[in-house]
Design a protein around this nucleic acid. Structure first.
Length: 322
RNA sequence: GGUGCCAUAGCUCAGUUGGUAGAGCAACGGACUGAAAAUCCGUGUGUCCCUAGUUCGAUUCUUGGUGGCACCA
């Protein structure tokens, strides 16, 4: 995407601020963001594509009831597992919520690690129609029956531009592009504007970091803790719904293999740890290419002090630039 | 103590009729616009146990060690 206004984050042109605390899973976002939210007298907007769902609190390391009682959280445990959701819906929901919250808050805290959801808020997503369920199923049937070739061939004819850009081995991308072409009669690429939406508030993004070894050992320990807290029982409850996309999630998909009898429990737990580590790495890779992100090393202590110095964000927020 | 087998990547192991080596898994790097904790792509990271020979050249053959396993005492 093109960045229209590189400096938009550093020039505080509005008195309203969205403070986004992001970082890889297991870094310590939840606890820190509660402190920060308290400091700014702000609720927390969660930016986590799995904590959104009901019933996944242990496996997604959602805020505990105690944490939830300290600060008002939005988008935690609000969706049924069967409900359709997307980064685009999230953009709509959050933008609507923010326009209310900013009426009586100057700084709102958002926290989470779902990369595309973060970008949906900070950069926006293009207006692309939602796919009709029947069409989606038809194309998926074709895919399972005959593979990706016929889908690629249709896309090549209907949208040669995107065909030249897309990862042709990634069936999700190829299929979705064709869905759009067939549904709208336009090319998928015509919907991709490659622009960043300008928001009527400042966006300050802070990534929490640690050295790799510490992050991994925190992740490994957290998985052991989840098992002690009853992750297996949580997964067992969800087992009948295991084919839902919302349950194609680290922590559950591995335990389903155990419940299927394919893996031993110990192996499944090792896989949860491994897949969580891999996920954290993908998050770090994604954040790496965003030049607007400030970095805060979790070995340092006073986050608020650092924040005000590094970003120019004032806790009292009285000093917008002209 | 004796005999036999083994020693190669982080792990499990291939392999080189003598020309300094490759698979799986792991690890690492990357992509990403309505399923994104999803999905997809790329990369070999090595004192081939040590030592002394033979040889133009030894990870490969020979000697002697060291470590492991098995059997016999």
């Amino acid at each position: 995407m093109m960045i229209n206004d590189v400096n938009s984050h550093s020039i505080l042109s509005s008195r309203k601020n969205l403070l986004v605390i992001l970082g890889p899973t297991g870094i310590g976002k939840t606890e820190l963001s509660i402190q920060v939210a308290n400091h700014f007298q702000s609720p927390i907007i969660s930016c986590d594509s799995r904590q959104l769902y009901k019933g996944l609190s242990i496996g997604t390391a959602a805020p505990t009831p105690e944490q939830l009682s300290k600060v008002k959280h939005f988008f935690i445990g609000t969706l049924e597992l069967t409900e359709y959701y997307s980064a685009s819906r999230y953009e709509e929901d959050v933008m609507a919520l923010l326009s209310k919250l900013f009426l009586d808050h100057d700084t709102i805290v958002m926290t989470g690690g779902s990369m595309m959801y973060i970008d949906a808020i900070c950069k926006g997503i293009d207006e692309i129609p939602t796919i009709d369920e029947k069409l989606r199923q038809d194309i998926f049937k074709l895919y399972t029956k005959e593979g990706l070739d016929p889908i690629r061939n249709q896309l090549k004819i209907l949208d040669p531009v995107f065909y030249g850009q897309v990862d042709l081995k990634n069936h999700k991308r190829v299929i979705h592009a064709l869905e759009i072409c067939l549904m709208t009669g336009k090319t998928y690429s015509s919907f991709r504007t490659n622009t960043i939406k300008k928001r009527p508030f400042n966006i300050i993004k802070v990534e929490l970091t640690r050295n790799r070894e510490d992050l991994y050992s925190r992740i490994n320990k957290r998985v052991d803790l989840m098992m002690e807290e009853g992750l297996l029982e949580e997964a067992r409850k969800m087992y009948p719904l295991r084919h839902l996309n919302s349950l194609n999630t680290v922590g559950y998909k591995e335990l389903f293999k155990y419940l299927d009898g394919e893996w031993t429990l110990d192996f499944a737990i090792e896989k949860i740890k491994q897949n969580t580590r891999i996920y954290s790495r993908k998050q770090i890779t994604w954040f790496k290419k965003d030049p607007e992100i400030y970095k805060f090393n979790m070995e340092n202590t006073d986050f608020i002090f650092w924040l005000e110095n590094a970003t120019g964000l004032r806790s009292l927020n009285i000093s917008p630039l002209p």
